[in-house]
Amino acid sequence: MTGRADAPRRSRFTRRKLVPYLFVLPNMVVFGLFTIWPAINGFNISFYDSANGRTFRPVGTDNYHRILGNDEFWTVARHTIVFVVGFVVASTVLATVLALLLNGQKRGRGALSAAYFLPVVVSPVVVGLIWNAALQRQTGLVNSVVSALGFGQPAWLIDPNLALISVILVGVWVHLGFYTMIMLSGLQSIDSSVNEAATIDGAGTWQKIRLITLPLLRPTTMVVITLATIAGFQAFDFIFTLTGGGPVGATTLIIQYIYENGFTPPIAYGLASAAAVILFLVIFAVTFLNYLVGRRTEAM
């Protein structure tokens, strides 16, 4: 993301001092009331203990100590990291490949793009239901193909390692179309004359992709990585209907951990809020890192 600061700064219309505030006001009122204030409140709650969300008992930083000293939390954190890394890498690579292929395709590009984009519009809850049926070991669509190809009947949702992979794959399935379109937009903003010059110089297709397209695509790739990282950390709805966090917690990620502490007995609402604060800090740090890396590559 570049957005050079000089563009708005050049247009200095400071005499109309009040106008910009009026423009941001409606959005910021809604935003402040329904996002920022509740978030501050949630931060505050992380220093209290509450079994019902209405009455509170101050406990200082106890909730944080309890989480950080809890083995289950670290298991969940490990699974979350595996999921996010797997999801981000797989969806970025696939989106890049797919965008390169689609960019080269003239005939039927619209229809093909539409097909890849279709899962984006399906509700996450339904995504989980559908894939749960499709990934059943003995009655699912996937294994009827897989076993016809001679690979037997893998236990997609039952084997703990496979289950995490299944969840990553379904996550990629949901978001791939969106990320591909972003990559495609990046590809199309690359000046075609650069490629043509390279062709004249005798560069092959692969050389052009590696030496010209991919480096020029880096800002767009950073956008996709950032979006995928945030989506990865926040994945929950489809996993909940797909595996319920199972088998034996293998796909219980951080949001579900927060949800279970906050909403299933024994309720530890303060603890859930503390975990949420930790999650926010981690996402923030990772995004900031992405931003720094992105800025450095732009400067190169």
Binding site: R137, A155, G244, G246, P247, T252
Partner: peptide, 9 residues
């Protein structure tokens, strides 16, 4: 499969 597939649901 049914048992393990339920997760915590």
């Amino acid at each position: 499969d049914f048992w393990l597939g339920a997760g915590t649901n």
